[in-house]
C-alpha cells in the first residue's frame, strides 16, 4: 500500500556530487588536468548518469585513482581509456565507440540532415509540379471563349 514514491532518484541514491579529497589529486597540474579530461569521458558504473569525476561513489573514487596512477605512469590518454574499457566494457565509455550497434547513433546527425534535405527537395518538386498543373493548357472551350473575347476587343479597337 505504502508504495515508496521518490521524486528524484537523488532521494534514494543520494548522488552526492563529489567534493573530492586533495590527496587524490596528482601533484603535477598538467597531469591532473589530463586525468580530469579522461575522467569526464568515463562513466561511474553504479551511478545514474555521472562521470567518475562528478561522483562520490566508491567505485568512481577507485576509477579516479586508477586513471591517475596510469597518467602518472606516463601512459597516453588513449592507453588509459583503453585500460578501463578493456576491464569494464562499452558501458563505461560516455562517448560510445563506433561499431555496428552505435552506427545509427553516430550517424544520427547525417541521417537526420540527409532525410530533411531529401524531404525538402521532394516537397519543392511536388509543389512545382502542382503549380505547373494549375496553369495547365486551356481546354478547347476555354480557347474558343478566349478567341471570341479577343475578337470583341479587336472589333472595339477597330470601330
Amino acid at each position: 500500500m505504502l508504495r515508496r514514491i521518490a521524486f528524484a532518484a537523488l532521494l534514494l541514491a543520494g548522488p552526492a556530487f563529489a567534493v573530492g579529497l586533495p590527496s587524490e589529486m596528482l601533484q603535477d597540474p598538467a597531469q591532473e588536468a589530463r586525468a580530469r579530461e579522461i575522467g569526464r569521458e568515463l562513466r561511474c558504473l553504479v551511478c545514474q548518469n555521472q562521470s567518475i569525476e562528478d561522483s562520490e561513489a566508491g567505485l568512481a573514487r577507485d576509477l579516479r585513482r586508477i586513471v591517475r596512477e596510469r597518467v602518472s605512469a606516463g601512459e597516453s590518454d588513449a592507453q588509459v581509456v583503453a585500460f578501463v574499457h578493456d576491464r569494464y566494457g562499452d558501458f563505461v565509455l560516455l562517448r560510445p565507440p563506433f561499431n555496428a550497434v552505435t552506427a545509427v547513433l553516430w550517424g544520427a546527425p547525417l541521417l537526420a540532415l540527409g532525410g530533411g534535405v531529401l524531404a525538402i527537395v521532394l516537397s519543392r518538386r511536388r509543389m512545382r509540379s502542382a503549380l505547373v498543373a494549375e496553369v495547365a493548357p486551356l481546354s478547347p472551350e476555354e480557347r474558343a471563349r478566349l478567341a471570341a473575347l479577343e475578337l470583341i476587343e479587336e472589333d472595339k479597337r477597330i470601330s
Binding site: S51, D90, P109
Partner: peptide, 19 residues
C-alpha cells in the same frame, strides 16, 4: 542487441556541434 552502452555529454557535444 543486448549491449549496454552509455551515451553521455561527450557524444552530445560532438554530435550536435556540426548542426
Amino acid at each position: 542487441f543486448q549491449q549496454k552502452i552509455s551515451v553521455g555529454p561527450p557524444f552530445f557535444n560532438s554530435a550536435l556541434l556540426p548542426l
